[in-house]
Design a protein around this nucleic acid. Structure first.
Lengths: 191, 191
DNA sequence: TCTGTGGTTTACCAATCAGTACAAGAAGGC
DNA sequence: GCCTTCTTGTACTGATTGGTAAACCACAGA
Protein backbone atom coordinates (compact mmCIF):
# COMPACT_ATOMS: atom_id res chain seq x y z
CA UNK A 1 0.00 0.00 0.00
CA UNK A 2 1.05 3.60 -0.56
CA UNK A 3 3.45 4.33 2.24
CA UNK A 4 3.18 7.84 3.54
CA UNK A 5 6.41 7.22 5.44
CA UNK A 6 5.16 9.68 8.00
CA UNK A 7 6.80 9.87 11.36
CA UNK A 8 4.98 10.70 14.51
CA UNK A 9 6.84 13.96 14.81
CA UNK A 10 5.87 14.93 11.26
CA UNK A 11 2.17 14.98 11.97
CA UNK A 12 2.42 16.82 15.29
CA UNK A 13 2.44 20.33 13.78
CA UNK A 14 -0.56 19.49 11.60
CA UNK A 15 -2.26 17.99 14.61
CA UNK A 16 -1.49 21.09 16.66
CA UNK A 17 -3.06 23.34 14.08
CA UNK A 18 -6.25 21.27 14.05
CA UNK A 19 -6.55 21.43 17.82
CA UNK A 20 -5.87 25.16 17.79
CA UNK A 21 -8.55 25.78 15.20
CA UNK A 22 -11.26 23.54 16.58
CA UNK A 23 -10.44 23.04 20.25
CA UNK A 24 -10.31 19.67 21.94
CA UNK A 25 -13.99 18.78 21.76
CA UNK A 26 -14.39 20.25 18.31
CA UNK A 27 -11.56 18.22 16.85
CA UNK A 28 -12.94 14.98 15.45
CA UNK A 29 -10.93 12.06 14.16
CA UNK A 30 -12.26 12.71 10.69
CA UNK A 31 -10.94 16.29 10.84
CA UNK A 32 -7.59 14.98 12.00
CA UNK A 33 -7.61 12.40 9.27
CA UNK A 34 -8.31 15.04 6.65
CA UNK A 35 -5.67 17.44 7.98
CA UNK A 36 -2.92 14.85 8.25
CA UNK A 37 -3.85 12.70 5.28
CA UNK A 38 -3.65 9.67 7.57
CA UNK A 39 -6.40 7.13 7.95
CA UNK A 40 -7.75 6.07 11.28
CA UNK A 41 -5.62 2.97 11.26
CA UNK A 42 -2.43 4.97 10.92
CA UNK A 43 -3.50 7.45 13.54
CA UNK A 44 -4.15 4.73 16.06
CA UNK A 45 -0.91 3.12 15.08
CA UNK A 46 0.99 6.27 16.08
CA UNK A 47 -1.27 7.23 18.97
CA UNK A 48 -2.79 4.11 20.52
CA UNK A 49 -4.33 6.30 23.20
CA UNK A 50 -6.52 8.03 20.65
CA UNK A 51 -7.46 11.68 20.72
CA UNK A 52 -6.25 12.21 24.27
CA UNK A 53 -2.78 10.93 23.46
CA UNK A 54 -2.68 13.08 20.33
CA UNK A 55 -3.53 16.21 22.29
CA UNK A 56 -1.05 15.24 24.96
CA UNK A 57 1.69 14.81 22.40
CA UNK A 58 0.86 18.17 20.87
CA UNK A 59 0.98 19.83 24.28
CA UNK A 60 4.34 18.21 24.97
CA UNK A 61 5.73 19.50 21.71
CA UNK A 62 4.45 23.02 22.34
CA UNK A 63 5.89 22.85 25.83
CA UNK A 64 9.24 21.78 24.43
CA UNK A 65 9.23 24.58 21.89
CA UNK A 66 8.54 27.21 24.52
CA UNK A 67 11.11 25.70 26.82
CA UNK A 68 13.76 25.98 24.13
CA UNK A 69 12.79 29.31 22.59
CA UNK A 70 11.24 31.24 25.46
CA UNK A 71 11.78 29.87 28.96
CA UNK A 72 15.41 28.79 28.78
CA UNK A 73 16.61 31.98 27.04
CA UNK A 74 14.93 33.96 29.82
CA UNK A 75 16.69 31.92 32.47
CA UNK A 76 20.12 31.70 30.93
CA UNK A 77 20.60 34.91 28.98
CA UNK A 78 23.63 37.00 29.78
CA UNK A 79 21.63 40.17 29.26
CA UNK A 80 18.25 39.59 30.93
CA UNK A 81 16.72 42.85 29.70
CA UNK A 82 17.43 41.94 26.11
CA UNK A 83 16.06 38.46 26.74
CA UNK A 84 12.79 39.92 28.01
CA UNK A 85 12.49 42.09 24.93
CA UNK A 86 13.29 39.09 22.74
CA UNK A 87 10.57 37.08 24.45
CA UNK A 88 7.92 39.57 23.42
CA UNK A 89 9.16 39.48 19.83
CA UNK A 90 9.24 35.68 19.78
CA UNK A 91 5.78 35.41 21.28
CA UNK A 92 4.26 37.98 18.94
CA UNK A 93 5.60 36.06 15.99
CA UNK A 94 4.51 32.70 17.39
CA UNK A 95 0.95 33.85 17.97
CA UNK A 96 0.99 35.72 14.67
CA UNK A 97 -0.21 38.90 16.34
CA UNK A 98 -3.18 37.17 17.87
CA UNK A 99 -4.36 35.47 14.71
CA UNK A 100 -3.12 32.20 16.10
CA UNK A 101 -4.63 30.90 19.29
CA UNK A 102 -2.59 29.73 22.26
CA UNK A 103 -3.62 26.10 22.55
CA UNK A 104 -2.53 25.90 26.18
CA UNK A 105 -4.64 28.93 27.06
CA UNK A 106 -7.62 27.72 25.06
CA UNK A 107 -7.51 24.33 26.74
CA UNK A 108 -7.34 26.03 30.12
CA UNK A 109 -10.71 27.62 29.44
CA UNK A 110 -12.24 24.49 27.98
CA UNK A 111 -13.82 21.35 29.28
CA UNK A 112 -10.57 19.49 28.67
CA UNK A 113 -8.78 21.47 31.35
CA UNK A 114 -9.03 18.77 34.00
CA UNK A 115 -7.69 16.16 31.60
CA UNK A 116 -4.45 18.09 31.08
CA UNK A 117 -4.40 20.06 34.32
CA UNK A 118 -0.84 19.16 35.23
CA UNK A 119 0.61 20.08 31.87
CA UNK A 120 -1.27 23.37 31.65
CA UNK A 121 -0.27 24.42 35.13
CA UNK A 122 3.33 23.50 34.50
CA UNK A 123 3.56 25.46 31.26
CA UNK A 124 2.30 28.70 32.73
CA UNK A 125 4.10 28.29 36.04
CA UNK A 126 7.43 27.84 34.27
CA UNK A 127 6.73 30.80 32.01
CA UNK A 128 5.94 33.08 34.93
CA UNK A 129 8.93 31.86 36.92
CA UNK A 130 11.38 32.25 34.05
CA UNK A 131 10.14 35.74 33.27
CA UNK A 132 10.20 36.78 36.91
CA UNK A 133 13.74 35.47 37.28
CA UNK A 134 14.92 37.39 34.22
CA UNK A 135 13.34 40.60 35.46
CA UNK A 136 14.83 40.05 38.88
CA UNK A 137 18.26 39.75 37.35
CA UNK A 138 17.53 42.85 35.32
CA UNK A 139 17.11 44.82 38.49
CA UNK A 140 13.46 44.51 39.49
CA UNK A 141 12.83 43.83 43.16
CA UNK A 142 11.80 40.19 43.61
CA UNK A 143 8.24 40.95 44.70
CA UNK A 144 7.43 43.34 41.90
CA UNK A 145 9.14 41.07 39.37
CA UNK A 146 6.87 38.19 40.34
CA UNK A 147 3.73 40.29 40.11
CA UNK A 148 4.79 41.88 36.86
CA UNK A 149 5.56 38.47 35.37
CA UNK A 150 2.10 37.19 36.22
CA UNK A 151 0.55 40.29 34.74
CA UNK A 152 2.64 39.97 31.57
CA UNK A 153 1.95 36.30 30.92
CA UNK A 154 -1.73 36.79 31.66
CA UNK A 155 -1.72 39.94 29.58
CA UNK A 156 -0.38 38.05 26.59
CA UNK A 157 -3.14 35.48 26.90
CA UNK A 158 -5.72 38.20 27.20
CA UNK A 159 -4.28 39.98 24.21
CA UNK A 160 -4.91 36.88 22.11
CA UNK A 161 -8.50 36.73 23.31
CA UNK A 162 -9.15 40.40 22.72
CA UNK A 163 -7.44 40.63 19.35
CA UNK A 164 -9.34 37.60 18.10
CA UNK A 165 -12.69 38.83 19.39
CA UNK A 166 -12.20 42.29 17.95
CA UNK A 167 -10.57 40.85 14.83
CA UNK A 168 -7.87 43.49 15.15
CA UNK A 169 -4.30 42.16 15.26
CA UNK A 170 -2.96 45.63 16.00
CA UNK A 171 -4.61 45.41 19.42
CA UNK A 172 -2.39 42.44 20.15
CA UNK A 173 0.71 44.34 19.09
CA UNK A 174 -0.28 47.39 21.10
CA UNK A 175 -0.91 45.45 24.30
CA UNK A 176 2.36 43.57 23.96
CA UNK A 177 4.23 46.80 23.40
CA UNK A 178 2.76 48.20 26.58
CA UNK A 179 3.59 45.09 28.58
CA UNK A 180 7.12 45.01 27.27
CA UNK A 181 7.65 48.62 28.21
CA UNK A 182 6.48 47.98 31.74
CA UNK A 183 8.65 44.90 32.07
CA UNK A 184 11.73 46.80 30.99
CA UNK A 185 11.28 50.04 32.88
CA UNK A 186 12.58 49.75 36.40
CA UNK A 187 10.11 51.49 38.58
CA UNK A 188 8.50 50.43 41.84
CA UNK A 189 5.26 48.55 41.34
CA UNK A 190 2.29 50.87 42.06
CA UNK A 191 0.16 49.81 44.99
CA UNK B 1 -48.14 16.21 31.53
CA UNK B 2 -46.16 17.74 34.34
CA UNK B 3 -45.86 21.36 33.44
CA UNK B 4 -42.56 22.78 34.49
CA UNK B 5 -44.00 26.22 33.70
CA UNK B 6 -40.50 27.20 32.77
CA UNK B 7 -40.03 30.39 30.87
CA UNK B 8 -37.34 30.88 28.34
CA UNK B 9 -35.62 33.38 30.58
CA UNK B 10 -35.63 30.91 33.48
CA UNK B 11 -33.45 28.38 31.73
CA UNK B 12 -30.95 30.91 30.36
CA UNK B 13 -28.75 30.99 33.48
CA UNK B 14 -28.63 27.19 33.60
CA UNK B 15 -27.88 27.13 29.90
CA UNK B 16 -25.12 29.69 30.36
CA UNK B 17 -23.46 27.59 33.03
CA UNK B 18 -23.47 24.53 30.77
CA UNK B 19 -21.86 26.45 27.93
CA UNK B 20 -19.30 27.93 30.28
CA UNK B 21 -18.36 24.52 31.63
CA UNK B 22 -18.25 22.58 28.39
CA UNK B 23 -17.76 25.16 25.66
CA UNK B 24 -19.88 25.35 22.54
CA UNK B 25 -18.73 22.14 20.87
CA UNK B 26 -18.63 20.23 24.13
CA UNK B 27 -22.19 21.11 25.07
CA UNK B 28 -24.57 18.43 23.83
CA UNK B 29 -28.33 18.54 23.91
CA UNK B 30 -28.36 15.71 26.40
CA UNK B 31 -26.14 17.75 28.74
CA UNK B 32 -28.46 20.70 28.33
CA UNK B 33 -31.44 18.50 28.93
CA UNK B 34 -29.92 17.17 32.13
CA UNK B 35 -28.90 20.61 33.40
CA UNK B 36 -32.23 22.27 32.72
CA UNK B 37 -34.51 19.35 33.43
CA UNK B 38 -36.20 19.98 30.12
CA UNK B 39 -36.74 17.37 27.46
CA UNK B 40 -35.80 17.85 23.87
CA UNK B 41 -39.35 18.74 23.01
CA UNK B 42 -39.36 21.68 25.40
CA UNK B 43 -35.91 22.81 24.38
CA UNK B 44 -36.82 22.94 20.72
CA UNK B 45 -40.08 24.61 21.66
CA UNK B 46 -38.21 27.47 23.32
CA UNK B 47 -35.29 27.50 20.91
CA UNK B 48 -36.40 26.31 17.47
CA UNK B 49 -32.96 27.16 16.16
CA UNK B 50 -31.36 24.50 18.33
CA UNK B 51 -28.00 24.80 19.99
CA UNK B 52 -26.98 27.85 18.00
CA UNK B 53 -30.05 29.80 19.08
CA UNK B 54 -29.50 28.72 22.67
CA UNK B 55 -25.94 29.96 22.68
CA UNK B 56 -27.05 33.16 20.97
CA UNK B 57 -29.69 33.77 23.62
CA UNK B 58 -27.16 33.13 26.38
CA UNK B 59 -24.72 35.58 24.79
CA UNK B 60 -27.47 38.17 24.52
CA UNK B 61 -28.31 37.77 28.18
CA UNK B 62 -24.70 38.04 29.25
CA UNK B 63 -24.34 41.10 27.05
CA UNK B 64 -27.39 42.65 28.65
CA UNK B 65 -26.10 41.94 32.14
CA UNK B 66 -22.75 43.56 31.42
CA UNK B 67 -24.45 46.49 29.74
CA UNK B 68 -26.54 47.10 32.84
CA UNK B 69 -23.98 46.35 35.53
CA UNK B 70 -20.67 47.25 33.94
CA UNK B 71 -20.78 49.29 30.73
CA UNK B 72 -23.55 51.77 31.54
CA UNK B 73 -22.28 52.55 35.05
CA UNK B 74 -18.89 53.32 33.52
CA UNK B 75 -20.46 55.66 30.99
CA UNK B 76 -22.93 57.43 33.21
CA UNK B 77 -21.35 57.53 36.64
CA UNK B 78 -20.99 60.93 38.27
CA UNK B 79 -17.67 59.88 39.75
CA UNK B 80 -15.80 58.02 37.02
CA UNK B 81 -12.88 56.98 39.22
CA UNK B 82 -15.23 55.28 41.66
CA UNK B 83 -17.01 53.65 38.74
CA UNK B 84 -13.76 52.19 37.46
CA UNK B 85 -12.98 50.78 40.90
CA UNK B 86 -16.51 49.40 41.13
CA UNK B 87 -16.07 47.71 37.75
CA UNK B 88 -13.13 45.68 39.01
CA UNK B 89 -15.10 44.61 42.07
CA UNK B 90 -18.13 43.65 39.99
CA UNK B 91 -16.04 41.71 37.50
CA UNK B 92 -14.07 39.88 40.18
CA UNK B 93 -17.30 38.76 41.77
CA UNK B 94 -18.88 37.82 38.44
CA UNK B 95 -15.94 35.66 37.41
CA UNK B 96 -15.64 34.32 40.94
CA UNK B 97 -11.96 35.15 41.07
CA UNK B 98 -11.25 33.23 37.92
CA UNK B 99 -13.08 30.08 38.90
CA UNK B 100 -15.81 30.98 36.46
CA UNK B 101 -14.93 31.25 32.80
CA UNK B 102 -15.84 34.22 30.65
CA UNK B 103 -18.05 32.62 28.03
CA UNK B 104 -17.50 35.46 25.58
CA UNK B 105 -13.75 35.10 25.88
CA UNK B 106 -13.86 31.32 25.65
CA UNK B 107 -15.99 31.47 22.52
CA UNK B 108 -13.56 33.96 21.01
CA UNK B 109 -10.82 31.35 21.24
CA UNK B 110 -13.01 28.50 20.03
CA UNK B 111 -14.21 27.17 16.75
CA UNK B 112 -17.54 28.91 17.29
CA UNK B 113 -15.96 32.34 17.03
CA UNK B 114 -17.02 32.92 13.43
CA UNK B 115 -20.58 31.94 14.22
CA UNK B 116 -20.92 34.67 16.83
CA UNK B 117 -18.27 37.06 15.54
CA UNK B 118 -20.50 40.14 15.59
CA UNK B 119 -21.69 39.62 19.12
CA UNK B 120 -18.22 38.88 20.48
CA UNK B 121 -16.70 41.92 18.82
CA UNK B 122 -19.50 44.13 20.03
CA UNK B 123 -19.21 42.99 23.64
CA UNK B 124 -15.51 43.68 23.92
CA UNK B 125 -15.60 46.86 21.85
CA UNK B 126 -18.27 48.35 24.10
CA UNK B 127 -16.40 47.30 27.22
CA UNK B 128 -13.18 48.91 26.04
CA UNK B 129 -14.96 52.06 24.92
CA UNK B 130 -16.92 52.47 28.13
CA UNK B 131 -13.83 51.97 30.25
CA UNK B 132 -11.76 54.35 28.14
CA UNK B 133 -14.48 56.97 28.37
CA UNK B 134 -14.65 56.70 32.13
CA UNK B 135 -10.90 56.97 32.46
CA UNK B 136 -10.90 59.93 30.11
CA UNK B 137 -13.44 61.70 32.28
CA UNK B 138 -11.34 60.78 35.31
CA UNK B 139 -8.47 62.75 33.90
CA UNK B 140 -6.50 60.37 31.70
CA UNK B 141 -5.41 61.78 28.35
CA UNK B 142 -7.57 60.27 25.60
CA UNK B 143 -4.78 58.30 23.96
CA UNK B 144 -3.44 56.71 27.12
CA UNK B 145 -7.00 56.03 28.34
CA UNK B 146 -7.75 54.04 25.19
CA UNK B 147 -4.58 52.00 25.45
CA UNK B 148 -5.02 51.41 29.14
CA UNK B 149 -8.60 50.29 28.61
CA UNK B 150 -7.53 47.72 26.05
CA UNK B 151 -4.82 46.47 28.36
CA UNK B 152 -7.25 46.24 31.29
CA UNK B 153 -10.01 44.38 29.44
CA UNK B 154 -7.47 42.05 27.88
CA UNK B 155 -5.74 41.70 31.22
CA UNK B 156 -8.95 40.57 32.87
CA UNK B 157 -9.45 37.91 30.22
CA UNK B 158 -5.88 36.78 30.62
CA UNK B 159 -6.27 36.68 34.37
CA UNK B 160 -9.11 34.19 33.97
CA UNK B 161 -6.96 32.01 31.72
CA UNK B 162 -3.96 32.13 34.02
CA UNK B 163 -5.84 31.64 37.27
CA UNK B 164 -7.66 28.65 35.83
CA UNK B 165 -4.55 27.08 34.38
CA UNK B 166 -2.58 27.56 37.59
CA UNK B 167 -5.63 26.72 39.67
CA UNK B 168 -4.83 29.69 41.87
CA UNK B 169 -7.67 32.18 42.29
CA UNK B 170 -5.39 34.57 44.16
CA UNK B 171 -3.52 35.15 40.90
CA UNK B 172 -6.74 36.53 39.46
CA UNK B 173 -7.21 38.85 42.41
CA UNK B 174 -3.60 40.00 42.28
CA UNK B 175 -3.69 40.81 38.57
CA UNK B 176 -6.95 42.68 38.90
CA UNK B 177 -5.60 44.69 41.81
CA UNK B 178 -2.62 45.69 39.69
CA UNK B 179 -4.79 46.63 36.73
CA UNK B 180 -7.13 48.65 38.92
CA UNK B 181 -4.23 50.56 40.43
CA UNK B 182 -2.91 51.44 37.01
CA UNK B 183 -6.32 52.52 35.78
CA UNK B 184 -6.80 54.83 38.74
CA UNK B 185 -3.35 56.38 39.00
CA UNK B 186 -3.03 59.32 36.65
CA UNK B 187 0.36 59.04 35.16
CA UNK B 188 1.52 59.35 31.58
CA UNK B 189 1.53 56.07 29.72
CA UNK B 190 5.11 54.76 29.47
CA UNK B 191 6.46 54.47 25.95
C1' DT C 1 14.02 -14.99 -2.57
C1' DC C 2 11.82 -15.44 1.66
C1' DT C 3 10.17 -13.37 5.87
C1' DG C 4 9.16 -10.41 9.70
C1' DT C 5 7.95 -5.88 10.90
C1' DG C 6 5.94 -1.48 10.43
C1' DG C 7 2.52 1.04 8.17
C1' DT C 8 -2.02 1.22 5.82
C1' DT C 9 -6.66 0.40 4.12
C1' DT C 10 -11.19 -0.99 4.80
C1' DA C 11 -15.00 -2.46 7.16
C1' DC C 12 -17.14 -2.47 11.20
C1' DC C 13 -18.87 -1.45 16.07
C1' DA C 14 -21.95 0.55 19.67
C1' DA C 15 -22.87 5.04 21.33
C1' DT C 16 -24.08 9.49 20.73
C1' DC C 17 -24.98 13.44 18.02
C1' DA C 18 -28.53 17.29 16.46
C1' DG C 19 -32.86 17.52 14.95
C1' DT C 20 -37.97 16.06 13.71
C1' DA C 21 -42.59 14.33 14.39
C1' DC C 22 -46.33 13.70 16.96
C1' DA C 23 -49.40 12.22 20.34
C1' DA C 24 -50.80 13.41 24.77
C1' DG C 25 -51.46 16.01 28.92
C1' DA C 26 -52.10 20.39 31.51
C1' DA C 27 -54.01 25.13 32.03
C1' DG C 28 -57.00 28.85 31.07
C1' DG C 29 -61.02 30.92 28.69
C1' DC C 30 -65.70 30.21 27.79
C1' DG D 1 -68.47 20.91 30.99
C1' DC D 2 -65.61 21.60 26.51
C1' DC D 3 -62.10 23.44 23.55
C1' DT D 4 -58.02 25.76 22.31
C1' DT D 5 -53.34 26.82 23.22
C1' DC D 6 -49.22 25.93 25.21
C1' DT D 7 -45.96 22.62 26.93
C1' DT D 8 -44.07 18.09 27.34
C1' DG D 9 -42.46 12.99 26.78
C1' DT D 10 -41.37 9.50 23.64
C1' DA D 11 -39.83 7.61 19.69
C1' DC D 12 -37.60 8.14 15.80
C1' DT D 13 -34.37 9.75 12.04
C1' DG D 14 -29.80 9.67 9.50
C1' DA D 15 -25.34 11.18 10.32
C1' DT D 16 -21.21 11.22 12.99
C1' DT D 17 -18.68 10.15 17.05
C1' DG D 18 -14.31 7.63 19.10
C1' DG D 19 -12.47 3.32 18.74
C1' DT D 20 -11.47 -1.80 17.18
C1' DA D 21 -10.20 -5.70 14.15
C1' DA D 22 -8.15 -7.75 10.70
C1' DA D 23 -6.68 -8.26 6.07
C1' DC D 24 -3.12 -6.46 3.41
C1' DC D 25 1.00 -4.33 1.39
C1' DA D 26 5.88 -2.26 1.27
C1' DC D 27 10.22 -2.70 2.44
C1' DA D 28 14.62 -4.12 4.81
C1' DG D 29 17.59 -7.69 6.38
C1' DA D 30 18.96 -12.44 5.94
Amino acid sequence: MARTVAERSDVLPLLAEVFREHGYEGTSLSLISKATGLGKGSLYHFFPGGKEEMAGAVLAEIDGWFEAHVFRPLREADDPATAVAAMFATVAEYFRSGRRVCLVGALSLSDARDRFAGRLRDYFARWVEALAAAMGRAGHPAASAAMLAEEAVGGIQGAVVLARALDRPEVFERILAGLRARCLILEPYPT
